[in-house]
Design a protein around this nucleic acid. Structure first.
Length: 797
DNA sequence: GAGATTACTTAGCAGATATCTC
DNA sequence: GAGATATCTGCTAAGTAATCTC
């Protein structure tokens, strides 16, 4: 078959549908042909066949397509079969049940007859039209008296160690759940009457509702968001809606450009300043009041044990700050009232009182989920949940399971890699795409890449990569350039497996064009189904966890147990950084970064100058040394005259500013005490400034004569000692600079929090005698208590 | 089987707090 | 002790993925 015929096949399969955002997207056709059914044959049924074909298939791009169109096979049972797996059950066991030795095989338990029963329809206290899941029956009454964990003082003191007790399986998430509901943001307090929005130069009197919305914008007037035209447009539309709804303006507002928020902005800035300048006691009182209000919502009782709640606060209204080019950025996030909040709580628990004059939207008793409350937000029409804190047992169990699943991948990854390497050459397009996607996810830690709508930012992951996101440079170089999660740019120039390169070229082949999906036969759902054939619980995201933790383990293995604690921490962070780079965890370079780097560079230059100056002093004392130790003095003329002049200038300027700033601070105090203020003519200031002037003259003289002034009492030994100190400082500062630059765009926290098995950090801490406090913050120590208490120095991922 | 729904994890940013430097 | 800088924490947006519905 000719290549043109091949293209016809491809064209038939790639159905072009206009994307909601106007782009043309490639979609697999819904009308299946016999050959398309072929694609759906389970791999297990085709492995043998594919293998025999592989040997005969010419791997030319065209012939691949020819083979596909020639093949007319049908899936006999018409459904996707599941590749037979080893019957070893892949369920996690608690950390204490496991040996911490790497060599020990994980405990194998028998598979349950039914691991995840289908959820049945649930009867609710309030009938709803939507389907609902039926919670498992709560086995026993859970009287509130038992919920303070009575009779278990030891546990109360030490905290509940779920990892030593819990059966981690099962769909039911709790036996009893008792809590006090959620904390609502305070009601809006109108602005003082003199703070107005202006329209076309005239003050506008707004309704309370409209004023609140105007204030949201006014407060962020100087942010990048407020300068974004999409943000402005969305805000303005919603602002006008609120004005209409509340009959809320005495002036007809028609154009955004005529709005002047500057008075509002100034008022909010003034409030900020006032807050800043509060006395310690005032700040303390505010904090205490805040804590008093929060207290009832901070904790709840889960199965009779006290646990921390995470985000017990209902999100306050405001303007939606979407990331990247989000089409809805700037829209009004409306205030949430109790009527739209659903509480999830034990059937026999007391329902918390809703705020006065309100009612809860719904009360549920669903023990198959872990949220305490939820509400629907108005931006994406999705749910927001109130959940347990990261340190809670329920989150701990889930975290532990996540890492155990990733660890189980160790036992399968070799087979998976072998398989996808083979399937890269499959004659079936879907298999090739599946294999290529798995390769990219495995090797470059790409996310799955689910489809997105036109009301979201245009970001992609593996399955949603489009034509324009990769550039191919023969023989096997690929340039990835796309926006991933949070609109973070993923840019990498990499060399890939030759067959992967060939496949990507096929996936980009005409008639595909910019806007078309590269992977038009697969999606995350199919991909994950495929992955589950290899291992229960295996999904695309498990690869990220696995590869991150595996990389960390490998990096830690390279570290030698030597040096100070600080040096070991630096090495640990370097390992952490490797993982962060793998996962593309970035952060915006801080505004002050340029300045900071400049300052460190200046400091370095100054240190070098100091060192050279000290060496010149030595030669002033003993000129003969120049011949004796040429190398030691080889740098004494390294600095250009201009550089030296610049350094002198910086030092003089800095010292002068220090004196003047100090004078300013002192004057503020003196003013309060109603005493006479200092001036540059005051004796104490004059004296200091004169000393600086003397120093300047000394420097000028040195520059002019080339002779360095040696301080009284200096000896060669003393000067050499000083040089050594400076040299050490140069080394430290250079390292500091390198660290700054290396870390300026890399965020280490995300991988530490989500991807690196915390037991690796614990192992490092114990093996290398580095206090865990140096590696985990307090929050992380709480979150990973299970790891800290269960892993030892021999633990391995 | 596709799309919708639901529930969960992952993510960067901004403000709060702690630590360092002068 | 004050200001600068680093680190930590809370917030909430933005993903993934399982399940449900049509």
């Amino acid at each position: 078959m000719s290549s043109s015929e091949d293209e016809v096949v491809l064209t038939k399969r790639v159905k072009k549908v206009p994307k909601k955002n106007g782009k043309i997207a490639a979609r697999s056709s819904s009308s299946t042909t016999a050959s398309e059914n072929d694609d759906d044959l389970p791999l297990s049924q085709r492995n043998g066949h594919a293998k025999s074909k592989d040997t005969s298939v010419d791997d030319d791009e065209d012939s691949v397509m020819s083979t596909i169109s020639k093949k007319k096979r049908k899936n006999e049972n018409g459904s996707t079969a599941v590749k037979k797996q080893k019957t070893v059950k892949d369920e996690p066991v608690s950390p204490k049940q496991k040996s911490t030795k790497a060599s020990t095989t994980p405990k194998v338990t028998k598979p349950k007859a039914e691991t995840k029963p289908k959820m049945a329809v649930k009867k609710e206290t309030k009938p709803t039209t939507k389907k609902e899941k039926k919670p498992k029956e709560i086995k026993e009454e859970t009287p509130l008296a038992s919920q303070n964990n009575e009779g278990n003082e030891e546990e109360e003191e030490e905290g509940y160690k779920w990892w030593e007790a819990e059966d981690l399986d099962g769909e039911q998430k709790w036996e009893s759940l008792v809590h006090n509901g959620v904390l609502f943001p305070p009601e809006y307090e109108p602005l003082p009457s003199y703070v107005k929005l202006y329209y076309d130069g005239k003050p506008v009197t707004l309704s309370k509702e409209a004023e609140e919305v105007a204030g949201f914008y006014g407060a962020m007037l100087e942010t990048e968001h407020a300068k974004n035209p999409v943000f402005q447009k969305n805000f303005f539309n919603d602002f006008l809606s609120v004005i209409r709804e509340s009959n809320g303006s005495d002036v007809e507002i028609k154009e955004f450009e005529k709005l002047d928020f500057s008075k509002m902005y100034a008022y909010f800035e003034k409030l900020k300043e006032e807050k800043k300048s509060m006395t310690k006691d005032e700040k303390k009182a505010i904090k205490e009041e805040k804590e008093r209000l929060e207290e009832p919502y901070k904790t709840c009782f889960l199965n009779g044990r006290k646990e921390l709640v995470g985000n017990f606060r209902i999100e306050p209204p405001g303007l939606f700050r979407g990331r990247g080019a989000h089409p809805k950025t700037g829209k009004l996030k409306r205030r949430v009232y109790p009527e739209s909040v659903t509480l999830n709580i034990s059937a026999d628990a007391k329902v918390p009182e809703p705020p006065a004059g309100h009612q809860w939207g719904e009360i549920r008793h669903d023990n198959t989920v872990t949220w305490l409350a939820m509400w629907k937000e108005n931006i994406a029409d999705s749910f927001k949940y109130v959940r347990f804190a990261a340190s809670s047992s329920i989150k701990g169990v889930s975290d532990f399971k996540k890492f155990e699943t990733a660890r189980r991948l160790k036992d399968h990854v070799e087979a998976i890699r072998k398989d996808y390497t083979k399937l890269l050459k499959s004659e079936l397009m879907q298999e090739r795409q599946m294999a290529t996607a798995t390769y990219l996810i495995d090797v470059f830690a790409l996310r799955a890449g689910g489809e997105k709508g036109d009301d979201e930012a245009d970001t992609v992951g593996c399955c949603s990569l489009r034509f324009e996101h990769i550039t191919l440079k023969p023989p096997n170089k690929v340039i990835f350039d796309f926006l991933g999660k949070d609109s973070i740019r993923f840019y990498q120039e990499v060399e890939v497996d030759k067959q992967v390169f060939k496949n990507l070229r096929i996936f980009k082949k005409s008639p595909k064009q910019p806007g078309d999906d590269l992977f038009d036969r697969i999606n995350p759902s199919l991909l994950n189904k495929h992955l589950q054939n290899y291992m229960k619980g295996l999904t695309a995201k498990v690869f990220r966890t696995y590869n991150a933790s595996k990389t960390m383990q490998d990096q830690l293995n390279l570290i030698k147990n030597e040096g100070t604690v600080a040096e070991k921490v630096v090495k640990f962070n370097a390992a952490n950084r490797t993982v962060a780079i793998l996962c593309n965890h970035q952060r915006t370079v801080s505004k002050s970064h340029g300045n900071t780097v400049q300052k460190i560079n200046d400091k370095l230059k100054e240190l070098v100058w100091q060192k050279i100056r000290l060496k010149r002093m030595i030669l002033e004392l003993e000129p003969k040394l120049l011949k004796k130790d040429k190398e030691y003095f080889s740098e004494i003329n390294d600095l250009a005259k201009e550089d030296e002049e610049h350094i002198h200038h910086s030092i003089i300027q800095r010292q002068t500013q220090q004196v003047l700033k100090k004078m300013q601070r002192d004057n503020e105090k003196l003013q309060l005490e109603k005493q006479e203020l200092l001036t540059e003519e005051s004796d104490s200031i004059k004296e200091k400034l004169e000393k600086i002037q003397e120093l300047k003259e000394e420097y000028d003289e040195e520059l002019r004569t080339g002779k360095t002034v040696v301080k009284k009492g200096s000896t060669v030994e003393k000067l050499k000692q000083q040089i050594e100190t400076i040299e050490n400082r140069i080394v430290t500062t250079t390292l500091q600079l390198k660290d700054k630059e290396d870390n300026s765009e890399v965020s280490l926290g995300t991988s530490k929090l989500n991807y690196i098995d915390p037991r690796l950090t614990v192992m490092f801490s114990k093996k290398f005698d580095v206090p865990i406090e140096k590696l985990f913050t307090k929050t992380l120590r709480d979150k990973f208590k299970w790891a800290i208490e269960s892993a030892d120095e021999n633990w391995s991922f």
